[in-house]
């Protein structure tokens, strides 16, 4: 039996207009429009505190909206919360697994909350354990699992009701590279099977790998929207030249040198290097040398979402 079956109808899975969320005087989400269609992999990118998780909790129909409108699967979360949640899969940012239960029971008991009959849950649990490669660990205690295994178990748990819409809040935060790739592979399979994915992340490579379309959120607002390629084309140049100079004293040499190259393209001055946004990287390097500058390291690369992100959300560290 296939793990998944989803209809091919194009319909709006999430429709938000002017969506807001406030906590007392603090406004976490300040009026955003979102439209996610069936079968899409949609991403919310943004630094910490951008309002991604608050948005996700409203979409998950567990946190009431403070303003605007929101429809999930064509229903209103304020009145149809339970019906919506019955068709959602939620993989929260923090693991909320029951540490006292073993791996299998975590899935089985969760399936029972959806009212799935015992026999049916049992067979789904076997399938899901296989899918996330945890069959061998079925009887293990959750607290004995590695971080990557816990995440995979959380994802398996979010699939137990065969959701139409899967919400993943920072699914790979805190995982090592191997574990991330395993998880990406599993999410990619779900996407291939037609599951609509909504992902929040602050990893740009993750967004590029997984998302068909994404929005960049900053300070509760949407700063940009589009496919990863579109965003790069709109907000960055084809190539980026990275220049790194030796440190001579306490001051950041990059700040001083930046003044000498500021006509070569848009600059981002980072603590350890200068990024020059110009379509032709080789030309930038040639001009840098012509001006008598001698970087200790140069790199010409293609623009990535990270460049878009830096431009749109700034370089200020948000804790």
């Amino acid at each position: 039996m296939p793990l998944y079956r989803v209809g091919a109808v194009t319909e709006s899975m999430i429709l938000a207009r002017g969506l807001r969320k406030s906590f007392g005087d603090f406004e976490a989400v300040k009026g955003i429009d979102v439209d996610v269609r069936r079968g899409e992999a949609f991403g919310f990118l943004g630094p910490n505190g951008a309002g991604k998780s608050s948005t996700m909790r409203m979409i998950a129909s567990v946190s009431p909206i403070s303003g605007g409108s929101l429809q999930i699967l064509g229903m209103d979360p304020a009145t149809d919360g339970p019906a919506i949640r019955g068709r959602l899969g939620v993989c929260p940012q923090e693991d909320t697994l029951d540490n006292e239960l073993n791996v299998r029971d975590n899935l089985y008991i969760y399936g029972r909350y959806f009212g799935i009959p015992k026999g049916e849950v049992n067979s789904r649990v076997d399938e899901l354990l296989e899918f996330v490669s945890l069959t061998e660990k079925a009887k293990a205690k959750v607290e004995d699992l590695s971080g990557g295994m816990k995440r995979r178990l959380t994802i398996a748990r979010s699939l137990v009701n065969r959701p139409d819409l899967l919400l993943l809040d920072e699914p790979t935060t805190g995982l090592d590279p191997q574990a991330r790739h395993v998880l990406w592979d599993q999410l990619f399979r779900l996407k291939q099977a037609g599951v609509t994915l909504v992902i929040t992340t602050h990893y740009m490579d993750e967004a590029e790998q997984l998302c068909d379309r994404l929005v960049v959120m900053d300070k509760g607002l949407i700063a940009a929207e589009g496919s990863p390629r579109q965003l790069i084309e709109e907000h960055s140049t084809r190539e980026v030249t990275e220049l790194r100079f030796g440190i001579t004293d306490e001051t950041n040499p990059h700040e001083l040198i930046a003044e000498k190259v500021e006509d070569l393209g848009r600059l981002e001055v980072l603590p350890d290097r200068i990024l020059v946004y110009s379509p032709d990287g080789e030309e930038v390097i040639a001009k840098v040398h012509e001006r008598g500058l001698d970087p200790i390291g140069v790199l010409v690369r293609r623009s990535t979402l990270e460049d878009v992100f830096l431009k749109l959300t700034g370089r200020t560290l948000v804790d």
């Binding site: 339970p82 019955g86 959602l88 029951d98 909350y113 009212g115």
Partner: peptide, 14 residues
């Protein structure tokens, strides 16, 4: 601590 209630209300349970 375990936040199990949060995972429970992500289902049709209230």
């Amino acid at each position: 601590w375990h936040k199990t209630y949060y995972s429970m209300i992500a289902t049709p349970l209230e």
